[in-house]
Design a protein around this nucleic acid. Structure first.
Lengths: 349, 349
DNA sequence: ATGAAAGCGCTAACAC
DNA sequence: GTGTTAGCGCTTTCAT
C-alpha cells in the first residue's frame, strides 16, 4: 500500500502551509475561496485521507464513542466446533443486546458519530474495555460485560453509560428499566390470573438487573403467601446451564410455573420441555423477560416483559453526548418504561 | 473529567522511563518482572488508559477495521416524523446488511479486532467514508453505500472490501454471490415448474449485484421464449418507490409473477397486494432475494435466494486481515454459494 | 488571510 | 534491561 499522503503533501502541492490545509477542512470560512479550492484540488489529486489518530491526538477528542458488549458466546470455544447449533443461534438473533446496539447505531448515525464496537476475548492481558476506552470520547457498556473496577477506572477519564448497571460515582451513568417491579407485575399476573401455587425461577444474579428480577419474583410470591422455590442458576447464552437448571426443577417435581430471567432462557426451556413430552402452558406455565423477536415467534408465544431496547440504546447515546458537552456532570440514572406482554405461554388465550 | 494520565505520569510514579512503560504493555517479556509489576501498579493507581490516537499515530496502524454501511433510511428525514411505520421497520429487522454486519462483528471479535461503524449522513461536506477510512487499517463497505470514486481513493491507502462491488484496481477486493445465476435459477423455477408466461420485475440497477439480478431474470425469460416486461424502478428501503412500481405493474395488467430484486421489496409487495385484495400465490406469484428472516416469517413465506450473509461478513474480514498481513496484494473477488429457498409465495405447497 | 512553531501521547530505533 | 530521543500527522495559538 502506498504511503498515505499527509497535510504536508497537500500543502506543498497547493503551495500553502499545512496550517492552511488544516483550516480548509476544519474552518473553511476562514480561508479565501480560491485558496480553499486549490487545497481541495490538491487533496483530491493526491488522495488525501486525514489521519484520525493524528487529529485525535492533537484535538484531544476522537469524535467516536464506544459500545462494549458481551462476547456473544456464539463463537466456538474449540475452533471448528459450533458453540451452538446454527439453527438455534440463528433463531435467536437478534437478541436483547443486538436490539440495544441497533438503537445505539441509529442514534450515532443520526448524530454523525462514529461508533467503535468492542467486546471481550482480546488476546492480551489488559482488560479489553480499557483498550476500547482509549479509542473513544465516551463509552457505553453492557453491565456484566466488563469488570466494574475497569469501568470505574475508565469513568474517571471519559463518561460511561453502563446499561443496566449501578451508578457508582462520577462520570458513570446508567439506563435501565425497573426490573424488579416489571418482574413483580409478571409474577402477580401468574398468581392472580392463573392462580399458580408453586413457581420455579431460572436465572442468574450476575448483574443488578438480574438481581432485581429475582427479587421482584421472590417478593411477589411471599406477598401472595406462597413460598418461592430456590433460584436455579442459569445464564442466558449458556444453554447447558439452563438445561441443567431445568432438570433440577423437574427433579423437585413439576411446578405450576417456570419463571425465567430472560426470553433466551425461556425459549430453551420451551424446547427442553417439548423434548420431554411436556408442553407449555398445558403442563406448566413459562415466562420470559426482554421481549426479543424470537419470543413472539415461539410456539406458544412467550408471556414476557418487553423492554424498550432500541430506546435504551438511543438514550445511552444521548446521555453520553450531553456529558461530553459538559452538561453531564451529574450522574444520570434513567429508568425507562417496560410493559407486560401476554402471550400464550402463561396460559392466557 | 480529569486529565487523562499519560505514560509520563505512569513512568514518573513507577520511577522508570516512558520507554519502559511502553514496553511493559507492548512486550512484557522484555521487561524485568519486578519493573513490570511496578509499572502495572503505577498504571492502575493513576487509572492509566492508553491513548489509541497516540499509539496509532506512532505505530502507523490503528488496530481497527471499519464497516461502512448505508444509512438505514429508518431515520426520519423530518425529525419527529417516523420514516417508516414502527411496525414495518421492526418487522424487517434484521435486514440483509444487519446479518452481514453480524458476521463482520463475530469475526472481528474472534480476532480481537476493534470494529468502527460508519455510514452516510455526516453533517460535513467531505464524504463520510473518507472520515471512517482515516480511522482504520482496512475498510469493508457495502456497494452503493459510498461513491465508487471515494472508495477507490481510499483503496490506494488501505485495503478495501466492497461487498457486492466490482473490483477496480489495487487494494480493492469483493465478496458476493453469483447474483445473475441465482436469479436465473429462481426464474427458471417459475417458468418450468409454475409455467409462468408473463413476469414483471421490480428493482434497482444501482449496484453491480442488482444489475446482475435483473440481467439473470431477463436472460432467463428470453431463453424461455418469453418477453420480459420492462423493469420497474424500485429501491429496497424506499417503500414508496416499491409501491409506485407495483402500481405501474398493476396498471399494465396483472402478470403471472412479480419478481423482486430483494426480499425487502417483495414483502412490501405482499402487503400492498393484500391491501388491494390480491393474494400471492393465488392471484400472482411473488419472489424475493436475500433470505432475510422476515422472508420466512411472511405469509405466505417468500420463495427467495438465500445468501450466506453471515459468511459474507466473515469472509470480508478474512480478506482484509490477509491483505493487512501483506498476502493480499492481489485483488480478490470471492464468490460465495447461494441457494434457492422455496416458500409458498411462488405457488409451491 | 496565511504561516511558523509548539505540542498532543506514544513507539521504536539506538545507545548505554 | 532500561533510557534517550526523534518522529508519527495534525491542530491551534500567535505573529505577520
Amino acid at each position: 500500500m502506498a504511503r498515505r499522503p499527509t497535510v504536508y503533501d497537500v500543502a506543498e502541492l497547493a503551495g500553502v502551509s499545512i496550517a492552511t490545509v488544516s483550516f480548509t477542512f476544519s474552518r473553511p470560512e476562514r480561508v479565501k475561496a480560491e485558496t480553499r479550492d486549490a487545497v481541495l484540488a490538491a487533496a483530491d489529486s493526491v488522495g488525501y485521507v486525514p489521519s484520525a489518530s493524528a487529529r485525535g491526538l492533537a484535538r484531544g477528542r476522537t469524535g467516536a464513542i464506544g459500545l462494549y458488549a458481551f462476547d456473544y458466546l456464539l463463537e466456538p470455544s474449540v475452533p471448528g466446533t459450533p458453540a451452538l447449533e446454527p439453527a438455534r443461534a440463528t433463531r435467536l438473533f437478534p437478541l436483547y443486546s443486538d436490539e440495544v446496539q441497533r438503537g445505539v447505531q441509529l442514534e450515532c448515525r443520526a448524530r454523525g458519530l462514529a461508533l467503535m464496537l468492542g467486546s471481550g476475548r482480546q488476546p492480551d492481558q489488559r482488560p479489553a474495555v480499557i483498550d476500547v476506552a482509549g479509542r473513544v470520547d465516551g463509552l457505553i457498556a453492557f453491565a456484566g460485560a466488563a469488570a466494574p473496577a475497569s469501568l470505574q477506572q475508565v469513568a474517571r477519564r471519559i463518561p460511561v453509560v453502563e446499561l443496566g448497571g449501578l451508578v457508582r460515582g462520577q462520570g458513570m451513568h446508567t439506563v435501565l428499566v425497573d426490573n424488579g417491579e416489571s418482574m413483580a407485575e409478571l409474577t402477580r399476573h401468574l398468581v392472580s390470573v392463573h392462580g399458580i401455587r408453586t413457581a420455579a425461577y431460572l436465572g442468574d444474579l450476575g448483574t443488578p438487573e438480574f438481581t432485581a428480577r429475582w427479587e421482584g419474583f421472590e417478593r411477589t410470591l411471599l406477598e401472595a403467601g406462597l413460598v418461592p422455590r430456590g433460584r436455579m442458576a442459569s445464564a442466558p447464552g449458556d444453554d447447558r446451564s439452563t438445561v441443567e437448571a431445568l432438570e433440577r426443577v423437574l427433579a423437585e417435581g413439576l411446578p405450576d410455573a417456570i419463571v425465567c430471567s430472560t426470553d433466551q432462557e425461556a425459549l430453551v426451556v420451551l424446547d427442553e420441555l417439548a423434548a420431554r413430552g411436556l408442553r407449555a402452558p398445558d403442563d406448566v406455565l413459562v415466562t420470559g423477560f426482554d421481549g426479543i423477536v424470537a419470543a413472539s415467534l415461539a410456539d406458544p408465544p412467550l408471556t414476557t416483559v418487553v423492554q424498550p431496547m432500541e430506546h435504551v440504546g438511543r438514550r445511552a447515546v444521548e446521555i453520553l453526548v450531553a456529558a461530553l458537552d459538559g452538561e453531564g456532570t451529574v450522574p444520570e440514572s434513567d429508568v425507562l418504561p417496560s410493559a407486560l406482554r401476554i402471550g400464550r405461554s402463561c396460559g392466557c388465550s
